[in-house]
């Protein structure tokens, strides 16, 4: 009996997210003609590739109990650097992509280093990172840089045909691969489990002998890598670099992670959930387009609202959970003794 209740406890939030997605997609299908098609479903993926990639990195950060506000501007910086290297410096794509990814990793390492080494608050450091990234975009160029490169054009235009006349873009494959990698890393690697341990109780993780310092830095490197990769994927759609790309995308990303069932206080969450969170986000966007009269800013407001609802939901779930096991959780005695 105990076993059963555990399973529900752990996957409950995943089901909630999945349920929300089904309900929203279902509601759209019932309300609008032409909504319920395979291609429209695949479009959800195609429209949100970059968000999925960002979400994977952010999931790790949030599970560890941290936050990364720099992802949007780092994405933007990646688009600027990539397009500048391609168009202005005429680098080869096989050089540009590793360079941009390395830049993302370095940026993440820098932030992770400050946060870990000097025990600084993640949000203030990554908030500064948000402005640093944005400022560096302007250093690269004030104007939009169009990308004129064969490989990029190819990535932008090619359609990978699936069955029944439906297709996806190569970016979807990249995004899905990142999600799969994220699921694997979070569930089946030492790094992944250490992230959970840190989020559960950082002090314990240290005392259990886990490599907390290294892992924390690595988490922000992963997030930096994902931001840079998302930037590259972003340019596959826009074929340009622009300093104002991804403004406010940090909330969108955090929102999708939260909607995906990851606890904002850390210690619990799933990459798969984040993917569904992103799909929910995509569905809202499409619904607003189909609805026609609302302007696109309503997406922002809806997302803000959903985050609010999910944070409430998480608190309610946690309250219920600690209610059932209050005997173990009560702060009855374990007040640390300082002797």
């Amino acid at each position: 009996m105990k076993k059963k209740s555990l399973i529900t406890q752990r996957s409950l939030s995943l089901f909630v997210t999945l349920g929300l997605f089904v309900v929203m997609f279902g509601a759209g299908s019932l309300s609008f003609i032409g909504f319920f098609t395979l291609q429209n479903f695949l479009n959800l993926f195609m429209n949100t590739t970059y968000l999925m990639i960002l979400g994977v990195g952010m999931t790790f950060v949030i599970i560890s109990g941290g936050i990364d506000l720099s992802v949007g501007s780092l994405l933007s910086l990646a688009t600027m650097v990539a397009s500048s290297l391609l168009t202005k410096s005429h680098w080869n794509p096989s050089l540009v992509i590793p360079t941009v990814l390395a830049m993302g990793i370095a940026f993440g390492l820098f932030q992770g280093f400050l946060i870990q080494k000097f025990n600084l608050q993640p949000f203030i450091i990554t908030l500064a990172g948000l402005y640093l990234g944005r400022g560096l975009c302007y250093v690269v160029s004030i104007d939009t840089i169009a990308i004129d490169n064969r490989f990029w054009h190819h990535m932008a235009n090619v359609q990978i045909n699936l069955f029944a006349n439906s297709y996806i873009s190569p970016s979807v494959i990249i995004a899905v691969l990142v999600v799969i990698a994220g699921i694997f890393v979070s569930r089946s690697t030492k790094f992944g489990r250490t992230v959970f341990a840190i989020g559960g109780n950082e002090q314990s993780a240290v005392l259990m002998g886990l490599p907390v310092a290294r892992t924390k830095m690595f988490i922000y490197m992963v997030s930096g890598f994902c931001s840079a990769l998302a930037g590259i994927v972003f340019t596959f759609t826009t074929l340009s670099g622009y300093s104002l790309n991804g403004v406010g995308m940090e909330l969108d990303t955090i929102a999708t992670v939260v909607i995906g069932g990851t606890l904002l206080t850390g210690g619990m969450g799933s990459v798969l959930g984040t993917m569904f969170g992103v799909l929910v986000y995509g569905t809202i966007q499409v619904l607003i387009v189909f609805q026609g009269t609302l302007n696109s800013w309503w997406t922002r407001i809806t997302i803000g609202f959903l985050v609010f609802v999910f944070v409430l939901l998480q608190r309610a779930l946690r309250a219920r959970k600690s209610g059932t096991s209050s005997a173990t959780q009560s702060r009855a005695e374990p007040l640390p003794r300082r002797s």
Binding site: R193, F196, A197, G199, G200, N201, Q203, S204, A205, L207, M208, G267, M268, P334, L335, P336, R337
Partner: peptide, 10 residues
């Protein structure tokens, strides 16, 4: 340790 130093979420 007296205060159990484990990760309750795991």
């Amino acid at each position: 340790y007296q205060e159990v130093n484990l990760c309750l979420n795991l």
